[in-house]
């Protein structure tokens, strides 16, 4: 078959997954946050408020697209692309099951992390180009956030790489299915990863860039209609990608302990998605429970706690691996 055709079909499939996830996540967020606040969330449209999703999409499509007249026109138009397209591209590397992975290069983990670090630049561009005070502050905070969480995030993904001896996500999953889930030997990394994931997706304890009560809507204040929709679609996509990465690196991906890949068959996808949504649920509960950090505290947590702990932990982990190898092999 023509490789371009295959690639196009895969992109189409992943796009559907991404849109479905966006719709699901918005509904889920409203319901979970609603119940966390002792409210009911959406109930009016359709059974249990499910048609609210459609209403939201239609609303975003038919709203007037407003341009603030002193914005930096070109940057203002390009910024949603810089936010949305890379977060769509990270989906290409997620191993949904042993066969369902769109792109599977040897360094897929590294590629994924690389694409994941582009959207904050788009957020900065959006806030800067809007030429609004609130948006500018949100934009500067986005950069501050990025230089805070990125290093601990990258470092906490290292121990699974050491254990699996590969940077291919599929290989990491397979090597977990033959040993144990890496959450057990790398528990500190897992916790660190979850904290950094909250920072990366700017969820409430760390939502510096949009902080509703302080900055109206932060970087997205001057955006409206579909451009605004894309910013938030990208955010929900990142949420899913972070959960998927945590599941892949630490929670055994699409495998279940004691069941072979052949026996699992097509249910592997369901296992993977279920694990992801459990983690997303956890993120949402944290979002409903904790209050926001102050912006300087946020940076201090990143630099004075997460970074030293993760560096020291990696060295301890490597030394432990070395000692275990010595005890086993006697080299």
């Amino acid at each position: 078959m023509n490789p371009w055709l295959v690639a196009l079909l895969r992109a189409l499939l992943i796009l559907l997954v991404m849109l479905l996830n966006g719709a699901m996540a918005i509904y889920m967020l409203r319901k979970v946050l609603g119940h966390a606040h002792l409210r009911l969330g959406p109930t009016e449209l359709g059974p249990a408020g499910l048609a609210q999703l459609l209403a939201d999409i239609v609303k975003l499509l038919v709203k007037e697209d407003r341009h603030p007249n002193r914005s930096d026109r070109w940057l203002y138009i390009i910024a949603p692309f810089i936010v949305f397209v890379p977060s769509f591209m990270t989906f290409a590397f997620i191993p949904f099951s042993n066969k369902l992975v769109a792109a599977n290069p040897d360094l897929s983990l590294l590629m994924m992390l690389a694409f994941m670090s582009i959207p904050p630049l788009g957020i900065f561009a959006a806030g800067w180009a809007s030429r609004s005070k609130f948006a500018t502050i949100g934009a500067v905070r986005a950069v501050g956030g990025m230089i805070t969480y990125e290093i601990p995030l990258l470092l906490s993904a290292l121990p699974p790489v050491m254990l699996a001896g590969s940077m291919n996500l599929q290989a990491i999953v397979v090597s977990q299915s033959t040993s144990i889930w890496y959450v057990l030997p790398c528990l500190p990394s897992f916790i660190m990863f979850l904290i950094c994931a909250q920072m990366e997706t700017s969820q409430t304890p760390f939502d510096m860039t949009e902080a509703d009560q302080e900055l109206v809507a932060g970087f997205a204040t001057e955006y409206s209609a579909m451009r605004f929709g894309f910013m938030y679609l990208a955010e929900f996509a990142e949420n899913f990608v972070m959960a998927a990465l945590a599941v892949t690196l630490f929670l055994g991906g699409w495998t279940l302990p004691g069941i072979s890949a052949a026996a699992l068959g097509p249910f592997a996808v369901l296992v993977f998605v279920a694990k992801c949504y459990i983690l997303i649920f956890l993120f949402m509960m944290i979002r409903g429970t904790y209050s926001r950090y102050r912006v300087d505290h946020y940076m201090e947590v990143g630099w004075k706690r997460l970074l030293p702990i993760s560096v020291v932990w990696i060295m301890v982990f490597a030394a432990a691996l070395r000692v275990i190898a010595m005890l086993k092999g006697g080299a």
Binding site: P3, W4, L8, R10, A11, L61, A92, P105
Partner: peptide, 30 residues
């Protein structure tokens, strides 16, 4: 093959955004 897929994702993402923004432009009032 992997590079082709990644390139496809890039083009497809941009195309989808243009499509949705175009649809919004057609449907929304000005």
């Amino acid at each position: 093959f992997q590079q082709i897929i990644i390139a496809c994702f890039l083009v497809f993402g941009i195309a989808f955004m243009l499509l949705a923004l175009g649809l919004s432009w057609l449907l929304s009032p000005t």
